[in-house]
Design a protein around this nucleic acid. Structure first.
Lengths: 201, 201, 201, 201
DNA sequence: TAGTAACCGAGACGGTACGTCTCGTCTTTAC
DNA sequence: GTAAAGACGAGACGTACCGTCTCGGTTACTA
């Protein structure tokens, strides 16, 4: 019973890494996650299969890293904070929906959501590194509104965040109905009634 | 290019059908959806592989039918309607959560939610036949409350339903935090504030 | 452990039998023996598969019966006996070769020769019912020549028959060289030297 | 429509090749050619099926190579040449018959003879690589006898070779009668009369 | 500046499962 | 009870990928 030595990351080929991640993201968009194979990634990347197996634990891990890699270029998340809570939330939900219906995002993101169902490790990676920043930023915006008295003091902000994104997620994953800009508005309005102080906002 | 003739359903073996569905549901719980194979289902069911391929289009379709088959025995959905909306919704969400954390439900249901991401046909089957009745029943309960003046007349009940289930679904699928009875209560309370007429209920 | 009762031949459908045998012979010529299936025979004959399995033991048996069935029309074998042994044998070998290179005979006959290698029962059927009459007739012609003093008295006529057909069979099965009319002549001449009395013929 | 690249023979596993050929020859003797499957060969050889499909075009090709492989060990063919033609030919035919009735040879060799009926490529391989050397050696022995005046100068030696082996082949393939040592003697004697110069030898 | 150790591309390997095909049996309905 | 029809259990087919395992060949540290 011997454990292989961990690969020496200092010798890692950056060229190969980039080629693999790019190939993975491209392929998942072309053929879907289910039809994506390590073999195809290796071929497209011009890389030996072993180079993939050496550095990633699973197909899901490669694709996930591919996502992060693509995200890296796109800068940080900054949420609008105009002071007008309703407007800010509506904008936020609208852009969330815009993202989800963008085909370049939809396909791979659905794949990820499928994959995390049988890979808890991947799920926590997703939540920590991809979703986390957005959820945290949303929480921050709500906290600022709460301090400004626009949101009742007793509201659990974690729950509030889920109240915002949960319905969208529900509709998107189950495809029960189309996601539209109007939906974002209606949802924001309804959630605000839940969070509000009761005073007129 | 010829399409095969559809099999003659009148000659279909009920024995084989039951064995296959039972084997599928059992196996998906034992080994998980990703590790489930048609060959294993056929072997467990004592059935030729062709008999599965003859009647189902995919692994997902078999598992889905397996679910429906198991559901058939369990009777119809009836939601509590005591007149106390808050109590009724809390009960409803609590039992939803109980279901989702029950390991016998969780494993195969996660599998289904993964599968529908790359099979829209299966998604619509799921929504129509498994989820549909529950969502519709929930809508009915809310409508009755709306008529009773407990819910504002301008509230879109489809949205209201998503406000109830979305957060749970979000938390369950992404595993951002544990689902507890307390969560059901807090969620019901918050949603009620969104739906309420503003008058004390 | 129960043996099925033998089928009642009096109820047998002559129409089905003819259709099956005809289909079998036609198909073996079209697709070759290896690619011939019971299913295809049944389909072509407009017959249930069970009807074939009821009356024949194997694919080989059907094809063989098909041959016999086609032969039935073709009358008895009569060999030339002009008194000129050399001429008669040359004619005989020539017509044998003509048969073997006729594509309508070649394909199915090769199939049969292949099949008998792993079906001794079929081999003995072939020798008894298809080849036997020709071999026996040849033996008779040689016997008459032996009585006339054209063949040495000590010659084993079974061996003599094999000396005639063996080389042709060898060349035909192994495709070592083409079978021509000239070959028939040369072979007949050489064999005659083996059989001869030594006196001038 | 793309053709797969030819495998890189330099990387080929000799261990796998030997195991496959041995398994193929053994199995064909045990279960017969018709019941021989690629899967069984792979299983017996402890080899993946793909390794067989990578290097051979068909089941027949594997079995044929198996024969060649077994032959390789048993060195070259050397025919007796004592000067006594009758004795030498009798010995030759006798050992030919001994081979053909040896069960270890009979089963796979029958299989090959069946297979070449619907695979001309295999037929020519068989004649060139397995039978060829023996036929050529026999021709050489006869040529030496012809030069020594023991065989008439006008005899076609190709035909003479067929006169020797054809009858044995005929009897062996059709199973018309048993092959014995006495048969070898009688056949050799008769053929010699065909080949002889007419003078007493 | 030679050696050497790790990674690299490539691809054969032992396997598993795929979805298709055909087998020979079983079951149903019609005659 | 035979016949046509066709679903059934069984299992081999040839393919696609899996994850592991050699192979040379770079490539970058070490002596």
């Amino acid at each position: 019973m011997s454990t292989r030595p961990p690969p020496d990351a200092t010798r890692r080929s950056e060229r190969a890494r980039r080629a693999i991640l790019t190939a993975a993201v491209d392929l998942v968009a072309e053929v879907g996650y289910a039809n994506l194979t390590i073999e195809a990634i290796a071929a497209r990347a011009g890389v030996g299969k072993q180079t993939i197996y050496r550095w990633w634990r699973s197909k899901g891990a490669v694709v996930f890293d591919g996502f992060l890699f693509r995200q890296e270029v796109g800068g940080d998340i900054t949420l609008p904070d105009t002071g007008d809570l309703r407007a800010d939330l509506t904008t936020l939900l609208r852009s969330t929906i815009d993202d989800l219906v963008d085909p370049r995002v939809e396909a791979p993101y659905r794949a990820l959501n499928a994959e995390i169902q049988h890979d808890p490790q991947l799920a926590s990676d997703l939540v920590d590194h991809l979703l986390g920043p957005l959820l945290e930023a949303t929480r921050q915006r709500l906290r600022s509104a709460q301090r400004a008295g626009q949101i009742a003091a007793d509201v659990d902000l974690n729950l509030a965040v889920e109240l915002l994104y949960g319905p969208i997620y529900h509709r998107w994953l189950l495809r029960t109905a189309p996601l539209t800009a109007g939906y974002a508005e209606a949802l924001a309005a309804l959630v605000l009634r839940a969070l509000g102080t009761g005073s007129s906002t």
